[in-house]
Design a protein around this nucleic acid. Structure first.
Length: 805
DNA sequence: TAATTCGCTAGACCGA
DNA sequence: TCGGTCTAGCGAA
């Protein structure tokens, strides 16, 4: 018996000569990357039958497909079901046949856990998780006798070998065609190591080119990758570009790409409409997808996702883009190859840095969900939550609910439920505003009220009439802690620990990054559970639970407003989990803190009202149709910091000139309490626009193309601009963001819209930018101080209203 | 083709 | 050419 320790990287399965499924575990140990084999774990699923004792022998003697019996059948005790029989099979093919066949058995009432992939099954049952520690006992060198998880620390993860690469290709057409257009250079970054392999057509004239041919470049890349032998390989959009391109070229050139990765070929894996490249034993991290997901989870907030914008936003990189045409030209003529090589190297390096930045966060997500890094980095909230819940269900010996069938999904999609409470604000300028909010409102309600699908409407008489009834009359068991609350409490506790860890560690300490990543990952999962309960495709779907959670949320935040008003605060505005209170002159910040303390003493344990901040001034504006606008406001704190929420300023689909002016106007209005300066500002901008002096970059509007261009019913400016560009030969993908400008040429706004790249400086419609961008962005703000549109446009007499003396 | 609902605003579209 | 309705996108929570 030998013992091994390491980090689990990957699990895959195959068949042996006896047609039995067995698992291969790829583990990073002290010796490097090693593969171990689990031959004693078999695929299985469950059935619920009418009478387990009676049916067990019937199942045992049955020949599936008239060929094979069940490998093993056994009655299982489950915490949430009776008459459960576990059916194991020699291999996954047999399981697939059997799970269909049992549907026809009249005594089989339900099937469960029949669609869990074998590798996932193994990870759930053993508690092992990718990117976490694994202790192995083996015989014959690599056959697993016993495998157990242990908590890896930050050094184990950052100690993994990571390599990023990036291709530059020739693109004489608009796009490179892997069948004919060669790779010009490949850059590779692994830690300190930064390499570029390049070649060009006529290399005699350029000494900076290192190789004679594309084939040599590819060979060198493969050799270097083999030598580096990474555990994680990183690309930027490698799922869609670098991997398929490289694979095609290597095939054509007769270069063995798999040599780069332990003899494992990168394989295309279809994930819905999306493609992904997966390599056995090497985790492919597509940093582009990482960024997209981080954006969705609110870890970053980005509009554009090209590597330049992303590295600029995250690292302040100011990375320069080298245009396709320049790359082509350099390769064709030899002039400017150095720029191409530098550009290529930077691409690989920033790709590497992005991966490095989020590696620990993903390691934590892997650990919680038991997904591989490859999977977790391509997963949305629902799959992370679901996999976490499945792992917990196994721990708690509970049967996992089935995925809904398509018909059921459709039905669920038609049923919505009421969300949070949003109070119409008191419009106008206000002074001394305290903002309070509930910390993790939804999770804390779920924990406090034991909200879970199986505690909903329990049959205990006292629960039905007891204290735990939601405002819309659903009740949840008070006797037994529910599944979801159990899981949430655990996550919450882990997060508290991680935050404690952060506090006692210096930000310079490498351990700090681990704590920070952990708490971030836990926060993502914590906040996703409520949405998951209301998500039509989820296994633990419960509209009733989601509905009860929001009903309680409305109750609690309203209650805060009521109690606040009883204490002579004025409830200005409310959105879901936050309350804006105007603090009257005779009260202070301390009174607010006192109020918060009092509220917390009355709230259930897991719930907590927090003091978010105290502001000198704030503004809410009136909508065009009247009434005050919800979800848009601006606050100015006592240090002069401006917080703008919901306004055009924070929206990508407005021109910079309008957004910047709006921010300046808000700043001026809130700081001075009067509109004069704001009016001057706006008039100045109008003048500049009229004079044609405004630069293109300040006029660009960014909008996403969300569906195929031909399926739009209503042709808005962004669609019109995109269509015109396509007619000129540009390719526009679904999901891409287009930048457009409203020009002078055309009738409707859409007629005048053109993609920015086709517009010359100075060709813009000043009237449009004044009437449809600048004025709408500011008018509702200064209108709160009595200024009208005419005061702006005609320079009419100014109001001399002073709001605060 | 992968968490939810609430809300604002624009510009096209359509019929009078 | 008008006013109402609908499509579309994005943001707050």
């Amino acid at each position: 018996m030998e013992k091994h320790f390491g980090i689990l990287l990957d699990v895959s399965y195959s068949f042996n000569e006896k047609k039995q499924s067995f698992l291969s575990l790829c583990v990073k140990t002290k010796k490097g990357k090693e593969f171990f084999f689990e031959r004693g774990f078999f695929p299985y699923f469950y059935v619920i039958v009418d009478d387990a004792k009676k049916r067990l022998p019937e199942i045992e003697s049955h020949l599936f497909a008239n060929k094979f019996p069940v490998r093993k059948a056994a009655i299982e005790k489950k915490s949430n079901a009776e008459n459960v029989i576990k059916l194991s099979f020699n291999n996954t093919e047999e399981l697939k046949e059997a799970r269909e066949e049992v549907k026809k058995f009249p005594f089989v009432l339900e099937r469960h856990e029949y669609d869990i992939p074998f590798t996932k099954r193994y990870l759930l049952d053993t508690g092992l998780a990718p990117m976490n520690g694994i202790t192995l006992e083996t015989k014959n060198g690599s056959d697993i006798e016993n495998a157990k998880p242990f908590d890896a620390d930050e050094k184990d993860i950052t100690g993994l070998c990571m390599a990023a690469f990036d291709l530059e290709t020739h693109s004489p057409g608009r796009f490179s065609n892997p069948l004919k257009d060669p790779i010009i250079s490949i850059a590779m970054t692994a830690g300190e190591k930064e390499l570029v392999f390049a070649w060009r057509k006529d290399q005699k004239k350029d000494a900076s080119v290192f190789f004679e041919s594309e084939k040599e470049v590819a060979e060198e890349f493969v050799s270097q990758m083999e030598k580096t032998s990474p555990d994680i390989v990183v690309t930027y959009n490698g799922d869609s570009f670098d991997f398929p391109y490289l694979a095609q070229r290597c095939k054509k050139l007769g270069v063995e790409l798999k040599r780069a990765f332990f003899g494992h070929e990168p394989r295309l894996k279809r994930m819905g409409l999306d493609n992904a490249y997966r390599i056995n034993g090497v985790q492919h991290l597509d940093a582009y997808k990482v960024i997209r997901v981080m954006n969705r989870f609110g870890v970053v907030n980005l509009v554009k996702f090209d590597l330049e914008s992303v590295s600029d936003a995250i690292f302040g990189a100011n990375k320069k883009k080298v245009d396709h045409n320049d790359i082509n030209l350099a390769w064709e003529t030899g002039k400017g190859m150095k720029e191409v090589i530098d550009y290529n190297r930077e691409d690989a390096t920033y790709t590497y840095r992005i991966a490095q930045r989020y590696l620990l966060l993903y390691a934590e997500l892997c650990r919680l969900s038991h997904e591989t890094l490859f999977e977790a980095s391509r997963s949305g909230a629902s799959s992370l939550v679901e996999d976490l819940l499945m792992a917990k269900a196994f721990e708690l010996n509970a049967l996992v609910p089935n995925k809904p069938e398509e018909g059921e999904v459709k039905k669920r999609m038609l049923q919505s439920f009421k969300g949070g409470y949003v109070k119409e604000p008191v419009p106008g300028l206000h002074e001394n505003i305290a903002v309070l909010d509930f910390r993790s409102l939804h999770p804390s309600i779920m924990i406090s009220h034991n909200v879970s699908p199986e505690t909903l409407r329990c049959t205990h008489g006292e629960c039905m009439e007891g204290k735990n009834v939601s405002p819309d009359k659903d009740w949840f068991c008070m006797k037994q802690k529910g599944f979801i609350p159990t899981v949430l409490e655990e996550i919450l506790e882990k997060r508290v620990q991680a935050k404690k860890g952060m506090k006692k560690t210096s930000p310079k300490d490498p351990a700090y990054a681990l704590f920070a990543s952990k708490q971030q990952a836990l926060k993502i999962l914590l906040n996703s559970h409520y949405g998951y309960l209301g998500y039509p495709r989820s296994r633990w779907y419960s509209r009733q639970c989601a509905k009860a959670i929001t009903a309680w949320s409305r109750h609690y935040i309203r209650d805060i407003n009521i109690k606040a008003e009883q204490e002579n605060f004025i409830a200005l505005y409310t959105d879901t989990d936050s309350a804006f209170l105007k603090v009257p002159k005779e009260k202070t910040k301390e009174d607010v803190l006192e109020f918060v303390k009092k509220m917390n003493s009355e709230l259930p344990g897991a719930m907590e009202l927090e003091f978010e901040g105290y502001y000198r001034r704030g503004i809410f504006v009136t909508k065009r149709e009247g009434g005050a606008a919800k979800k848009r406001y601006a606050l100015l704190d006592f240090d002069g910091n401006l917080k703008i929420v919901g306004f055009e300023y924070v929206r990508r689909d407005w021109a910079k000139i309008a957004k910047d002016t709006q921010r300046q106007v808000l700043q001026a209005v809130l700081e001075l309490g009067s509109p004069q300066k704001a009016i001057e500002l706006v008039k100045d901008k109008i003048k500049k626009l009229r004079e044609g002096k405004v630069e293109k970059k300040d006029l660009i509007v960014l909008t996403q193309i969300k569906k195929p261009l031909k399926s739009y019913e209503s042709i808005g400016p962004h669609v019109a601009a995109a269509k015109k560009a396509v007619a000129r030969g540009k390719e526009i993908e679904v999901g891409s963001t287009v930048s457009f400008i409203i020009t002078k040429n055309g009738k409707s706004i859409s007629d005048r819209a053109e993609l920015e790249e086709f517009v010359k400086e100075g060709n813009y419609d000043a009237d449009y930018y004044i009437e449809h961008q600048l004025i709408p962005a500011v008018i509702r703000i200064i209108a709160e101080l009595g200024v009208s549109k005419e005061d702006l446009v005609q320079g009419g007499k100014q109001k001399s209203l002073e709001f605060f003396s």
